[in-house]
Design a protein around this nucleic acid. Structure first.
Lengths: 188, 188
DNA sequence: AAAGATGCGTCAACGATGCTGACGCAATTC
DNA sequence: GAATTGCGTCAGCATCGTTGACGCATCTTT
């Protein structure tokens, strides 16, 4: 038998993507770089999978899904955000958001108020109940991240942030940088 | 009007989750830590969203989805992997995998061979066509990661890896560590 | 050799979350 | 006054996850 369900190890040594049996130093270096990238693919998949797992369980019990969490998260972080701006962050269609949002409003997690400057806008905020749920979900992920930060060491966090920032597109970077600005402003 | 669709900035200064108008140094520090975690939530969402976007477009043209890519990725990295082991990596039900896998086999991307030691097993490998597709998808993500690594600086990559590793669960870490072992063995 | 466990596939039904396309209405802008 | 924008909604569809229940071949255990 094949050791049953012990965690298997990726057989990167097999180098299935290259027909070369022998490798020069050059191709070997190239290969190492390629494997480093493939390893990063693994990292992103597993980290994201396990990062969301705990919160998903709570959501399921409430009849909600991950999409609801995303909306709660960004509304909580941007109180009074307009629907179109939220759509820009999530990058989904308004029809998809509508389904999620109307359920959050109906269940009393999100409140809509008419915009003062532009009365067409529906500005979104979390209700007390919405804040409570967001916090509950947040605590799950906080735990995981706090542990990861602790184990990785404080020196690693900056590198983590820099690489993650580099992966996302320009618009997302601007958003992230804006958050950093706000934090700096508050601190200083 | 509200500046239309310029990237909005998260209003973290509003501190909607705390009723405190004034903050002591202690609560402010606590808040900063909390905001650091919330910021990491942003990072994971945006990075994952944009990391997968390019490959998704190719997949859509071929009538495939992200789930197919995940299967191709892990089969490519683990040639001859058994179905149950693949299920353990993806953490989905065998019914979900079956749908994806049977399509990949039918379209000629994946080959199944009966296990030698255990004839119940269907060992999975990429066909030449499967390798070609996986490589095409890989190149999309390689580009993004290479840019991110370059911009972040080589010193950041180790921190990135350490934090990402810390986020995932024990089993995933063992898998990741196994990949590292294999790379080290090949290099040394 | 019989009994049980395991690996894998499959039928059926359902739920969450994305998509396109088309309209309607109110409010703002030109 | 006409065009545009912000938002909601109806209708239909695809992907990909779920549970539950079987069936069959093959290994393992008794």
């Amino acid at each position: 038998m094949s050791d049953a369900r012990a965690p298997i190890k990726p057989n990167v040594a097999m180098m299935a993507t290259s027909p070369l049996g022998q490798q020069s130093a050059g191709t070997n270096l190239l290969f190492l770089r390629e494997d480093e990238i493939r390893s990063a693919q693994d990292l992103l998949f597993f980290a994201y999978r396990d990062f969301t797992a705990a919160a998903d369980m709570i959501l399921t019990e409430l009849g909600l899904g991950r999409a609801h969490h995303r909306a709660l998260h960004f509304i909580g972080r941007n109180p009074g955000i307009a629907v179109t701006d939220l759509l820009g962050l999530l990058r989904i269609t308004k029809q998809s958001l509508a389904r999620v949002l109307s359920q959050l409003v109906e269940d009393g997690y999100v409140a809509q108020t008419t915009g003062r400057a532009d009365r067409r806008q529906r500005l979104l905020t979390l209700t007390d109940q919405g804040q409570a749920l967001e916090r509950r979900l947040f605590e799950q992920q906080r735990e995981r991240l706090a542990t990861a930060y602790r184990e990785a060491g404080s020196g690693s966090v900056e590198g983590f942030r820099r690489v993650m920032r580099g992966i996302m597109d320009e618009q997302a970077r601007a958003y992230i940088d804006g958050a950093d600005d706000a934090a700096r402003r508050r601190k200083g």
